[in-house]
């Protein structure tokens, strides 16, 4: 773990891998809920870092963090968010070719495992989900689409993402969901929040 100061009011806590970053993020949330953390305006997990922004005394907090021993994630049992998917995306054939499977197998492979929301970004409610085995990673499209429809389930590198609303995008689209990814009237507004466990459920099979 390495703690870097970011400007005058933030800390970037960096780890060797995503697992440790997720465990640390869970520890931050646990301590915050218990009232055992000084005021932090934003807690932003990412690939292997957690940003603590809007901190009054970052150096004092950095010193405290050094003594934390986050509990491993597997000790915690959380509910699973289920996302129903029709695996009928425009890039299914291309993804199948990269994987060396029949196009009809793409959904079975993708829906087989459990995913976790590593972090959000790009757009409100857009989660970067890890859990796809390394051998199934696919590159981004050479030319991004100018409009990817809302509900598109797409792959890029180690990540799976679901577009909360129509936007430009360069990920490989393998399916579509009717799940509401983003609703500002809901608490939380995002269906997929950092740390959440996710399962994709094949529809129409």
């Amino acid at each position: 773990m390495r703690v870097r100061e970011v400007g005058e009011r933030a800390l970037l806590v960096e780890f060797g891998g995503g697992e440790e970053a997720r465990a640390f993020h869970a520890e931050v949330l646990r301590r915050r809920a218990a009232g055992a953390l000084p005021a932090v305006r934003e807690v932003v997990p990412a690939a292997r870092t957690v940003l603590l922004d809007g901190v009054d005394e970052p150096r004092a907090l950095a010193a405290r963090i050094a003594g934390w021993r986050p509990e491993p994630l597997h000790a915690r049992v959380e509910p699973v968010v289920e996302v129903p998917v029709r695996y009928d995306g425009p890039d299914v054939a291309e993804v199948a070719a990269v994987w060396g499977v029949a196009p009809g197998e793409v959904g079975r492979v993708h829906a087989a495992g459990e995913y976790r929301v590593a972090f959000c970004g790009f757009a409100p409610g857009f989660g970067y989900l890890t859990g796809l085995p390394e051998r199934y990673e696919v590159p981004r499209r050479a030319t991004p689409r100018t409009a990817v429809p809302a509900g598109s389930v797409a792959l890029a590198g180690p990540y799976t993402g679901v577009y909360p609303r129509s936007s430009p995008g360069g990920w490989q689209i393998v399916g579509t969901t009717d799940a509401v990814l983003w609703d500002p009237g809901r608490e939380p507004a995002a269906l997929l929040t950092p740390g959440a466990r996710v399962r994709f459920v094949r529809e129409g099979v």
Partner: peptide
């Protein structure tokens, strides 16, 4: 790898 960004970065 993607990481959190602050105002003024």
């Amino acid at each position: 790898p993607s990481e959190g960004m602050v105002l003024g970065a």
